[in-house]
Simulated assay, not measured.
Amino acid sequence: MDLAPFKHVLMLPRVRPLTLLMFFARMPPAATGVILTLHVAVTLDQGYGAAGLVGAAGTVGMGLGAPLMGKLIDSRGLRLMLAVSVTASAAFWLTAPLMSYWTLLISSFAVGLLGVPMMSIGRQMITALVPESRRRVALSIDSISVELSFMGGPALGVAVATKVSTSAALMFIGVSILVSGVLLYWANPPMVHEDEVVDGPKPKVFEWLRGRIVAVLVVCVGEVVCLAGMEVSAIASLEHIGKASWLGMVFFAMCAASIVGGLVYGGVKRVPSVLVLLVVMAVCEIPVGLGDGSVLWLCVLLIPMNLVCAPLIAACGEQISRLAPPAARGLAMGLQGSAFTIGGAIGSPLAGVAIDNGGAPLGFAVVGVAGLLVAGVAWVLARQGQQVNPLPVG
Rank of each mutant, 00 (worst) to 15 (best):
22 M>G: 01
78 L>S: 07
135 R>Y: 05
345 A>D: 04
124 Q>R: 13
195 D>C: 06
51 A>I: 05
44 L>G: 01
280 V>Y: 10
349 P>L: 01
272 P>Q: 09
11 M>K: 10
67 P>K: 01
247 L>A: 02
206 F>Q: 10
275 L>T: 08
150 F>L: 09
394 G>I: 08
137 V>P: 00
91 A>H: 04
352 G>K: 06
306 N>H: 15
276 V>Y: 08
161 A>R: 07
105 L>Q: 00
16 R>V: 10
156 L>A: 15
278 L>V: 05
384 Q>P: 02
238 L>E: 01
252 F>Y: 02
84 V>P: 06
344 G>I: 04
265 Y>F: 12
350 L>D: 03
100 S>K: 04
215 A>M: 07
171 M>D: 09
150 F>Q: 06
223 E>G: 12
173 I>E: 11
199 D>E: 14
116 V>F: 04
133 S>P: 04
135 R>K: 09
302 L>A: 09
171 M>S: 14
392 P>T: 09
335 L>S: 02
175 V>G: 04
166 T>Q: 14
79 R>V: 13
97 P>E: 05
290 L>G: 05
135 R>M: 09
168 A>T: 14
155 A>E: 01
108 S>M: 02
218 V>R: 00
382 A>S: 10
66 A>V: 03
54 V>W: 05
361 P>H: 00
55 G>M: 11
270 R>Q: 14
60 V>C: 13
9 V>G: 09
59 T>S: 14
257 A>Y: 00
81 M>K: 00
207 E>D: 14
370 A>G: 00
141 I>A: 12
262 G>M: 00
180 S>M: 15
253 A>V: 13
43 T>Q: 07
134 R>G: 06
122 G>Y: 05
187 A>F: 12
57 A>S: 13
36 L>V: 13
367 V>K: 02
67 P>G: 03
281 M>I: 05
213 I>R: 07
5 P>Y: 06
195 D>P: 04
277 L>P: 01
22 M>V: 02
71 K>M: 13
141 I>P: 07
284 C>Q: 09
171 M>I: 15
295 V>N: 07
241 I>F: 10
296 L>V: 15
178 L>P: 06
368 G>A: 05
185 Y>H: 12
103 T>N: 10
119 M>A: 13
359 G>I: 03
173 I>W: 06
42 V>A: 07
151 M>T: 14
371 G>Q: 07
231 E>I: 10
135 R>V: 05
38 L>S: 06
142 D>H: 06
95 T>C: 12
35 I>A: 02
233 S>I: 07
385 G>T: 06
153 G>C: 06
17 P>F: 11
180 S>P: 03
264 V>Q: 03
327 A>H: 04
172 F>R: 07
23 F>W: 11
193 H>D: 13
303 I>F: 09
217 L>Y: 01
79 R>C: 13
388 V>N: 08
9 V>E: 11
229 G>I: 01
348 S>D: 09
139 L>S: 06
238 L>F: 08
127 T>R: 14
162 T>L: 14
